[in-house]
């Protein structure tokens, strides 16, 4: 945990510097497509952060955060096109809608705990695709629908090419993600954050010390779903198209896996998880393009499937580094 005894170590300072440099270089070297892909990777931190808040800090396992990403995306699209709201308001309301749906799921989580909550949220992830096909007006049904609104650079922004807008969107996404990390860090270290963790470690004891179980659980889930919803809203900003086929159950599971692989209950875990996911994907692309493994080639193409690597990674890390990538360098602490 981060508190006064655990100021950022040298490694994390070096990491932050390296990451900032990389983020600053990307707009100068990437194409518009590359920039959009980079932005998509960066905003996926938000969904993973959402799982981290629920599972890592709140102790509520959620295997269905892809649902909240979907709700955020569909809602934002609806506010933009059907209600013709401006972008910032639509994003804010989309996030809020996802947060409300999260609060709704948080209600049963008051009684359903641990492995049973994992079961319910997994069911939710599986139901989401067929359910969203039932509301074609908002979701575009089976094939999805385009969003007419565009998030373009304003007039005062220098330059007026397509690249300019891509850079503008990229910087906007980076800003939002950094803000979200900062706000989350403050939340988990606030009075509310402490009650959240107390609830995770021992809810009876937390209640005795005056934590309101109902509001703490529901709020935690709402915040966590809101973060995932924000990810969905920004997806619409980057690619103005919403479709149910972006949200299969496996997506929810990979988000969960990224959170665990990165490290639950740490603020940098989600960032590490997403970096790992990206690195695995890139390594897979390289291996898939290389054709010299002979009969073993078929096994190596599996590396191309990031879901496979993450599945295996989840198992391996559970055995050897239960605190995830973020916990590898850290001293063992009494686990919560």
């Amino acid at each position: 945990m981060f508190d006064r005894q655990h100021r950022p170590s040298r490694i994390s300072v070096a990491g932050i510097v390296l990451l900032s440099v990389a983020l600053a270089i990307i707009p100068f070297v990437a194409t518009t497509t590359g920039l959009r892909q980079a932005s998509q990777i960066i905003i996926s931190v938000l969904a993973v952060l959402g799982v981290n808040v629920a599972a890592g800090y709140g102790g509520m396992i959620s295997l269905g955060h892809g649902v909240f990403v979907g709700v955020g995306a569909f809602a934002t699209g609806y506010y933009l096109d059907d209600l013709s709201l401006p972008w910032l308001l639509a994003i804010a309301l989309g996030t809020l809608t996802a947060a409300l749906s999260g609060a709704l799921v948080g209600l049963p989580a008051l009684r359903i705990k641990g492995i049973h909550l994992a079961l319910v949220t997994l069911g939710m992830a599986i139901v989401f695709q067929p359910l969203s096909k039932r509301f074609p007006k908002v979701t575009g049904g089976v094939s999805g629908q385009g969003i007419e609104a565009r998030f373009d650079a304003p007039n005062w922004w220098p330059g007026d090419s397509r690249m300019t807008s891509a850079v503008y969107r990229y910087l906007f996404c980076v800003l939002v993600v950094v803000l979200a990390l900062w706000v989350t860090w403050n939340i988990v270290n606030s009075r509310f954050g402490r009650s959240m963790r107390a609830l995770r470690d021992n809810d009876t004891a937390a209640a005795i010390y005056g934590v309101d179980l109902v509001s703490a659980r529901v709020t935690t889930f709402a915040v966590s779903a809101g973060l995932a919803g924000l990810c969905g809203a920004l997806q619409v900003l980057l690619v103005p198209f919403v479709s149910q086929d972006k949200f299969p159950a496996q997506e929810s599971l990979v988000i969960y896996a990224s959170a665990v692989v990165g490290g639950l209950g740490t603020i940098w875990g989600p960032v590490l998880g997403v970096i790992a996911r990206t690195a695995v994907g890139k390594a897979g692309d390289l291996v898939a393009g290389f054709d010299g493994f002979g009969p073993m080639g078929d096994f190596f193409t599996l590396l191309d499937e990031s879901a496979f690597v993450f599945g295996v990674g989840l198992i391996v890390l559970t055995f050897f580094f239960p605190r995830g990538l973020a916990g590898i360098g850290r001293k063992r602490q009494p686990s919560g």
Binding site: L253, Y256, E305, A307, F308, F310, G311, L314, I315, L317
Partner: peptide, 14 residues
């Protein structure tokens, strides 16, 4: 949960 979900993901993509 992590072990079984890991197994689910790995088997599915395998």
């Amino acid at each position: 949960v992590n072990i079984t979900i890991g197994l689910l993901l790995a088997t599915n993509s395998l």
